[in-house]
Nucleic acid binder design. Structure first.
Lengths: 202, 202
DNA sequence: GTCTATAGGCAGATAGAC
DNA sequence: GTCTATCTGCCTATAGAC
């Protein structure tokens, strides 16, 4: 919380900010209209520059898409997975991850939508990099589930299927959580946790 | 099971078959490469005709996409929802729907993927029609959940959120079920039902 | 019902001035 | 770092013969 943040930013930071601005604007338009239906001019308009100027910041349109997809796959790995390494039972650690995951989905809602729907427009190399993060995340979730089953804390169910089902349920939130408050988001996480741990039957 | 099915088909049936052939081929290519990255020529190649000939069967590329999206939203409404009207407890009726839903996801796997990912490329009129079916389906699922909660069979949880979560979990199956056997599919449905009804905790 | 040929337009990307 | 101007190619859709 710096009060004196008016001092001149160094060039690298300025450039980084511009890139972030472009990525954020692009994600919003991609999410609404679909990646291929959006032109470089549309993105440029949203940022207040001309189409050609975007190429000073990104070498191609696909690289903008890649930047979007990268943040929504890398950030959860770097920010949420450590919660699985903390102390606590598998239940506790899994619950923390679920809450963090849903919060991230809300904070980067449009980016998640793009990352989920526009994979086909990525270079195969970029797609492979994205999938590495995604698979890493899935694997770690599966591992907590397995740990919980080994300790008798969780029922014995195919952990691979449970992990996929749980993550699909969570990730779907970005499709309908538009404009929710912090409390709404935490309520959704609590409902999902109740469902996941205890099920519908009382 | 007619043995003598070699008799000549009437023109209307032939035309219908051709349309279905195009839709099936298109769904496969759309699912793999993304709607906008696929040209009319690609679809035509898969069917063995020239690009221009497609316009004898469909007035535009978007109409092919619409046909795909329509089947995966209308068929579940017409085929699965009646299971909710049958006799039985909410649990039983919901279980039947889940099993039918997963089977449909596998049977029309690529079509579901396209319907899920390419919504942004639909005409707003077509999108509205699609969403009517989808919302109808969601609503009916929510209604069984509410019925089960009223009867005390299900725990009291926000039924809207539970319905969305459950359907997101189910629909995600089309993303990874590629090439599964009938038994695999039913196993997934059973695991999801166990999770949904009883949760992870023994 | 399928073909050849082509219109017409849009969009990603580049060159080079400022 | 942003601009103007433009190239280039692709891709939907149409016209009209067979």
């Amino acid at each position: 919380m710096q009060e004196d943040d008016a001092e001149p930013l160094n060039p690298k930071t300025r450039r980084h900010l511009r890139r972030a601005e472009i990525v954020t604007a692009a994600a919003q338009i991609f999410a609404k209209n679909g990646y291929s239906n959006v032109g470089m001019r549309d993105i440029a308009d949203a940022v207040g520059i001309r189409g050609a100027s975007l190429y000073h910041h990104f070498p191609s349109k696909e690289e903008i898409l890649f930047a979007i997809c990268l943040t929504v796959t890398r950030e959860p790995v770097e920010e949420n997975l450590p919660l699985l390494d903390a102390a606590g039972t598998p239940s506790e650690r899994l619950a923390n991850l679920v809450r963090a995951h849903v919060r991230h989905l809300r904070g980067r809602r449009v980016e998640h939508l793009v990352g989920l729907h526009e994979r086909a427009s990525l270079t195969s190399e970029h797609l492979a990099e994205i999938d590495e993060y995604r698979q890493c995340y899935n694997h770690r979730v599966r591992d907590v589930l397995t740990a919980g089953m080994r300790s008798g804390e969780f029922r014995e169910l195919n952990p691979k299927v449970v992990a996929l089902g749980m993550l699909d349920m969570l990730n779907g939130v970005s499709g309908w959580i538009r404009g929710a408050s912090d409390d709404d988001v935490d309520e959704v996480a609590d409902i999902y946790l109740r469902l996941l741990f205890d099920g519908l039957r009382p």
